[in-house]
């Protein structure tokens, strides 16, 4: 046995065990749905969690000066108002799947990190195609 490689091997095995039992356990429920939160709000109060759902149509308010971004995350059953500070990601728009990392502060969810969950469907833009600039403009208009 060559000691150097054996030590490396044991470290990697330890890392896998840590990921499999610790990390994977946490990531199996990667995000909480609004209706799951509504069932037991006390369980999530003050804890750092991920909230997942769709951006409710017509609820996005963004102030480019203060970078205040407000919108409602919904799973079709329960709506939760989200307050986030920062520029919305490029793919952010109405009915977009999002995962927000943050904490509940009473009724409001304070987002610290805003992630986009896009679909597995890839389609050409309609009628001969938009340039990326046009796509960006469309997203901008949807806000």
């Amino acid at each position: 046995m060559k000691l150097k490689y054996l030590v490396g091997f044991l470290i990697v095995m330890g890392a896998i065990a840590y990921l499999a039992f610790g990390g994977l356990g946490n990531s199996l429920v990667y995000y909480v749905l609004p209706s799951e939160y509504a069932e037991n709000p006390a369980r999530y109060e003050g804890k750092r969690i991920r909230l997942g759902g769709l951006v409710k149509e017509g609820t996005v308010r963004y102030d480019p000066k203060s970078l205040d971004l407000r919108f409602v995350v919904t799973d079709g059953v329960v709506d939760i108002p989200v307050e986030h500070k920062g520029t919305p990601p490029e793919l952010f728009k109405d009915n977009q799947g999002v995962v927000v990392e943050g904490r509940f502060d009473g009724e409001v969810f304070r987002g610290e990190n805003l992630l986009i969950k896009h679909s597995e469907t890839y389609q050409a833009p309609p009628e001969g195609g938009y340039t990326p600039e046009e796509v960006r403009k469309l997203i901008e208009e949807a806000k």
């Binding site: 990921l19 990390g23 994977l24 990531s27 990667y30 490029e90 990190n113 992630l115 969950k117 896009h118």
Partner: peptide, 23 residues
């Protein structure tokens, strides 16, 4: 990074990929 908004996050596909690579 440009689509989801993050390089890495510990979600199931990424976590199992990390385990696969480490293995």
């Amino acid at each position: 990074r440009p689509t989801w908004g993050i390089f890495w996050t510990w979600e199931p596909r990424l976590t199992t990929s990390a385990i696969l690579t480490a293995f």
